[in-house]
Design a protein around this nucleic acid. Sequence first.
DNA 1: CATGAATGAGTCTTCATTCAT
DNA 2: TATGAATGAAGACTCATTCAT
Lengths: 194, 194, 194, 194
Amino acid sequence: MARAKDQEKRQLILTTAKALFARQGFHNTSVSQLVNQLAIPVGSIYTYFPSKEEILQAIIEEGWQDLKTALDQELTQAASLEAQLEILVSSVLPRLFQDTDLISIILSEGLEISRLDEKIDSLITLVLNLRKEAGLMELSSADPALTRIRTAIIIYFLGLMNAARLCTRTPLGISQADLLSFIRDLIHRELALS
Amino acid sequence: MARAKDQEKRQLILTTAKALFARQGFHNTSVSQLVNQLAIPVGSIYTYFPSKEEILQAIIEEGWQDLKTALDQELTQAASLEAQLEILVSSVLPRLFQDTDLISIILSEGLEISRLDEKIDSLITLVLNLRKEAGLMELSSADPALTRIRTAIIIYFLGLMNAARLCTRTPLGISQADLLSFIRDLIHRELALS
Amino acid sequence: MARAKDQEKRQLILTTAKALFARQGFHNTSVSQLVNQLAIPVGSIYTYFPSKEEILQAIIEEGWQDLKTALDQELTQAASLEAQLEILVSSVLPRLFQDTDLISIILSEGLEISRLDEKIDSLITLVLNLRKEAGLMELSSADPALTRIRTAIIIYFLGLMNAARLCTRTPLGISQADLLSFIRDLIHRELALS
Amino acid sequence: MARAKDQEKRQLILTTAKALFARQGFHNTSVSQLVNQLAIPVGSIYTYFPSKEEILQAIIEEGWQDLKTALDQELTQAASLEAQLEILVSSVLPRLFQDTDLISIILSEGLEISRLDEKIDSLITLVLNLRKEAGLMELSSADPALTRIRTAIIIYFLGLMNAARLCTRTPLGISQADLLSFIRDLIHRELALS
DNA sequence: CATGAATGAGTCTTCATTCAT
DNA sequence: TATGAATGAAGACTCATTCAT
């Protein structure tokens, strides 16, 4: 019981901090502002997190983990490659792009903190696995095609993340729906080619 | 007459601050760290800039302006559309992607400061103009094709910027040359279509 | 439970700041000088007051409030008008004139801070009430006699305050006792007239 | 010629500084604000005054000197004691009370700077001389009547100065004309007595 | 255990005065 | 001589974290 309540409070801290960090930036958000919003005493924070920075890290890592867990779950339930792609396009990616607070934080903070490179690596691995499942032959690590794929994934992923963030903050003339259309087109085109 | 304001010193402040802000972040760089590195007295900073934040803004705006000036100059000297694209791919974009410090700063700071949206807008205008010069008919503002183009530009631009930044900071397995190849392929493919 | 905010420390800050501000002026007294004198860390000041200026305001408002509270208390205990005047002359005014630090601060700082006008207004109200209690008829707000009384109160009050301040700082050849004699004479004369 | 122009500039600095110091306070007025208002270079100030504080002192001393010079001149031209008092009430005092900027500065700054005590002393001497001219016998320095007169002068003078300042800054319900009426009444009453 | 006052190194910025030009 | 950039000590204030209660 006590544990459950603790976890709830921990989650509440995370949620509130996430909104604050995303809108004002990590450095422009003070711990006291956070506790004011939460209406809890300052000391409380430090029973859940050893430092302000670890709150930031937890937001990023746990947010990303949630996404990955959902992805894995939905992907294993999919019958075919087509179904898997459909899930990607209709379920997982929209969920990621909707979480602009998480995206903002990941993109704004230092690489050491967000560990974007690790996240991209795992994404590349995922795509490569899908390729293999699709029956395409594996690429040797020296193959220039591998580099091309890797490059494309990085550019598309980062471009989409950043675009999703900007969409909600600024009048760019496009919407999140347009981003999803872009992905759908992209996947269809790529599949037709291969 | 008194000393004239030393524009070289102003530039030195800008250059040093740029490197510092890019590597450590704006908030993790103190004014005293900056003046230590420059070996000038604190007050000097404030004869050239009214605040720390205005240094940041000058870095972004002047850096971007330099790029645009170079772009405009080189573009007007190009004889054909092909030559213009070649300049884009071989000269201007490489220069932008090499300036990872500038990119880092633009992408990491708040929208109000970096005004990324304005920069993207001017980029879209540029591309639309190139299209017109190429003899393609103009798109009405309601045309879904316009939205598609807009979306693509945003994604590619942001993706490339971010990828260029990551390349030099983290071992992602790709290089800036790969990014340029990506662009080259992209342009050729798009031109073939049109 | 954490430490309770120490009201004694707050009072000590107020007392020390009052002496410093009165002798050196608000602007010539730095926060670090204040904390040095108090032998407490800088931050402590800011757990009790939001800013240096609010210390000044607290000194003035609380000092004035103390005086008014004492005045009200003693006045209600007085049996007759004569007793009330006696209290004024023998107890409350001497106490005010003795607090030359408070007077100095009130007179030296800006009107927005000291709100001298409000203080004078409440004094005029007090005197008018005493008049009424004495059975004198009320003056209509257009009556020139009201303006005369108002003018006299303002001049006497400000003159006495300022004189009290100067007495202790400079060799003017008069003492606080002389000021009290002046008041006593004044009141007797005025009462005889009315 | 050159000297005349210099004196003009010096006077302009004094006039501008006086208005600024009176309205914002000495410490809240920076030298650069002053030179901005004057539209002259910073260095210029220091060819006329050795420091910011000496500007303040010049404002006070020269302002006071002007008043005294005018007073002496007009007083010696007066035929009778009545004429002298009339001059005091109708000419010199109104001029002093109108110069609320000067009064503000004198009353707000430290005693060491404004040397209020010296000014009061010279005022007492003046009144004592008038008394002597009026044929009243001189008072020995031990005479309690001397102390009474001295006290009264101090209180009236400081009270009127302060009241004049407050009148123009705050809605106290009285005007400078009321102050002059007060003085007139006072003098008539006192003369009737003696 | 929960609390929030206490801490002090560190933040950005100011500004009267000087002096190289 | 006139100028205004240069200077740097000093200014008020912040804030993540600790620890006495």
